[in-house]
Design a protein around this nucleic acid. Structure first.
Lengths: 235, 235
DNA sequence: CGTTGGCTTGATACGCCTCAATGCTAGTGG
DNA sequence: CCACTAGCATTGAGGCGTATCAAGCCAACG
């Protein structure tokens, strides 16, 4: 099934997400919203940690470039990835009402975030609160969709759901919806989808074998989106 | 293992939750917070629907008595219970920024809610917004804890986690932490825990057989909380 | 060129799902 | 008061899907 490169050369620079001139309707925060503040910008390398659960929470962060994973940890060491976050998404909102962060946020690629100090948000920048509220509510709905998916779909279907979700989000940011570069490991993916990494690998291999996608390590090409989508509707 | 009644007579009236004189620190909304509005009150019978996904969203609801389940539905009919909600919890916040509700909310017992019109919240009652934000963030953290649990725990452990969680919540409302009356069906429980109803039954039966709890249909008595808790830490 | 981290694949085991039958309780109508 | 029913809960038998364990592979890197 593997027929050379997944990505044509013209797509190989999917890398760090470049600033996009037309923000996605409604959901993406951009600098135009904050004329009155010179926002702190922070760059991170892959695998670098933006914040950890338990650290004092003094700011939220807007992803401007790159990709982050957030994860929670139990007292006895069980870990779980709770989400992957692209440009325009807000990191740390879940701790909005808390003195410390509730999750870890780790860059999966060279990334850049803007810092929104909580002190500013609660004073001068309080116009933004409805916006934050909307993001919080949207996060809940997203979590619930995933809880639904994880509770009702098979391993392969979960992987398909993930690919389609990622493709749609990339597309809404102006990128190709067919060429995906998975910046996370199979283990991260498995943790998010409540699967073992071997199961993720097997699912991808099988999807490749049936021809709906082409897989080469972390490069994925979607070959038949319609068929992919149909795999979700009929159990 | 079953030795007569689970509940001593003195506990049998656990039924509809009576108003409680001392609200749980910080997290429970009560009437004292809204001196300026005469709140609409609404009573529902068991199985009655408070709102459904897709209906226009004009108000949030505070559970004052009884118990609700919320659930989401996919286009192709898969359903999943996203939570059970006791007195003091807010229903509908997940749709705060939306014109329509995003989930179904169904009473599992004779229940009572107070209505918080969105129009009021966005005008006169906007002092409450920080409060709502806190509830939203807390809901996200709760969802993540459950995602962690469902992704890392076995069937029996999930049931244990649910029982301990429910017991703690009941206790924080002033009720016994040992005598639980499950108002939901095994199917509801299974849907929430991502298990089949038979698996829930088997888990409960097995826990009963080992002596950590006593089960009689929907009545549960916790006999050894310490041992229950220890079942969660070592996989 | 060896090392390392991540990915793939195979063999096997086990936990949970599925299907099916039975039991229990509350509610209904004769 | 007692069949009768409907809805849930329980239990068992068997199969399937995913986890587990183990080995080998590949690409990146020092």
């Amino acid at each position: 099934m593997w027929d050379g490169q997944v990505f044509p050369d013209s797509c190989m620079q999917v890398g760090p997400f470049e600033p996009c001139q037309e923000p996605h309707a409604g959901t993406v925060i951009n600098a135009a919203l904050f004329p009155n503040i010179t926002m702190q910008c922070r760059r991170l390398q892959s695998r670098q940690c933006l914040f950890r659960a338990g650290q004092p929470c003094r700011a939220l962060f807007i992803v401007n470039a790159g990709l982050f994973k957030t994860s929670v940890l139990s007292e006895d060491g069980r870990e779980r990835v709770t989400g992957f976050h692209l440009r325009g998404e807000l990191l740390g909102i879940d701790s909005f009402d808390m003195p410390t962060y509730a999750c870890d946020a780790i860059a999966l690629d060279t990334s850049e975030v803007w810092e929104l100090p909580l002190s500013w948000l609660k004073g001068e920048g309080s116009d933004l609160l409805p916006f934050i509220t909307g993001m919080l509510a949207a996060e809940i709905r997203r979590d619930w969709r995933w809880m639904l998916a994880l509770g009702t779909l098979s391993a392969e279907q979960r992987v398909v759901a993930f690919l389609l979700d990622l493709a749609a989000r990339l597309q809404s940011l102006g990128y190709s919806a067919q060429y995906l570069l998975l910046r996370m490991t199979r283990a991260d993916l498995g943790s998010f989808l409540a699967l073992q990494l071997e199961t993720v690998t097997r699912a991808l291999s099988h999807l490749d074998a049936t021809g709906v996608i082409a897989v080469n390590r972390r490069e994925i090409r979607i070959r038949d989106e319609t068929r992919l989508r149909s795999m979700l509707t009929c159990p």
